[in-house]
């Protein structure tokens, strides 16, 4: 059994009012430990609602959620423990910063866990390094930092709790390409270093394709599919019909393959594509197309 499992999970907003809306509709998923998973779907497909169930912020209207084999809401007093197990970084997390210094803000989570000062200090220094915040920034006020830096402080605040599952909701929203790449690289490194489960919610296929190994596609409050990158992107047409796209570079290589060029692998990132093309060019002198 995986670290996150749901059974027939449904959530309805505004039950009994004219604004009633089914946000999550009978979702069954099973995510294995150590996996790095992208959750995609266009706006309003229920991604954000779904992930808020994973640490008990929302109580399912019906169905069950299991974290690490333990049922959520079976025992309410365990909820706080579970929240420490599943770290959730919200959209625009920089809006939750409140402390006088970056250091204190990152310390908020670990302090709530009841860690000693030494432990907290160690974790803050470690996560600050992981997210690329220099030691000189730690004593600054978080409100003095740039947007990208604030975002990284907020993410560090959750990472410092060292959760077994890290969930990030649109961590790159509103950032410039450089800031975006930095955050994604940081998430990848964090996953590689800690070996924990990471869930990355996004509506950008490009972001997801670069970072994750498995993809969960949400559409109209339902899980459309859950599988490896290549399995998901193989259904490019269906994805397009629900307003999602396959990464540009994958599309280019799909076309090339259709034209008869042989590739051993699926292509998801420009870097990989470059390597592949260079290798092919070296092997053959030039690529034959018939």
């Amino acid at each position: 059994m995986g670290i996150i499992r749901t059974e027939n999970l449904s959530y309805v907003y505004g039950e009994g009012t004219p604004f009633r809306k089914v946000a999550v509709d009978s979702v069954d998923i099973d995510i294995d430990e150590g996996e790095i998973v992208g959750i995609i779907g266009h706006t309003g497909s229920g991604k954000s609602t779904l992930i808020q169930h994973f640490n008990g912020l929302l109580k399912p209207t019906s169905g069950k959620v299991f974290i690490d084999g333990e049922e959520l809401f079976a025992d309410k007093s365990r909820l706080k423990e579970i929240r420490f197990k599943v770290g959730l970084v919200f959209q625009y997390p920089e809006y939750q910063l409140f402390e006088e210094t970056v250091y204190k803000d990152i310390a908020y989570g670990p302090k709530n866990m009841g860690l000693s000062d030494d432990d907290t200090d160690r974790r803050i220094k470690e996560t600050a390094r992981l997210v690329g915040l220099g030691p000189e920034l730690l004593q600054k006020s978080p409100f003095e930092l740039s947007g990208g830096q604030k975002r990284r402080v907020a993410i560090a605040g959750v990472m410092a709790m060292e959760p077994k599952v890290l969930i990030l909701d649109e961590p790159t929203a509103g950032l410039d390409p450089k800031g975006r790449d930095m955050i994604l690289r940081m998430i990848k490194e964090y996953h590689a270093e800690k070996g924990v489960t990471v869930l990355l919610v996004s509506h950008s296929m490009e972001d997801v394709a670069k970072t994750v190994s498995k993809i969960l596609v949400m559409n109209d409050a339902k899980v459309f599919m859950y599988g490896d990158r290549s399995q998901v992107f193989a259904r490019a047409e269906e994805l397009t019909s629900m307003g999602l796209t396959v990464p540009q570079v994958t599309r280019v290589f799909d076309r090339l393959r259709a034209m008869g060029v042989e590739f051993s692998d699926e292509v998801f990132s420009v870097d990989y594509a470059k390597d592949l093309v260079m290798r092919l060019l070296k092997e053959k002198g030039d690529v034959k197309v018939d």
């Binding site: 808020q52 939750q96 709530n112 709790m161």
Partner: peptide, 13 residues
């Protein structure tokens, strides 16, 4: 609500 959820996720009681 959003900020409350975010701080709860960080263990706010």
């Amino acid at each position: 609500d959003k900020i409350m959820s975010a701080q709860k996720a960080r263990g706010a009681d």
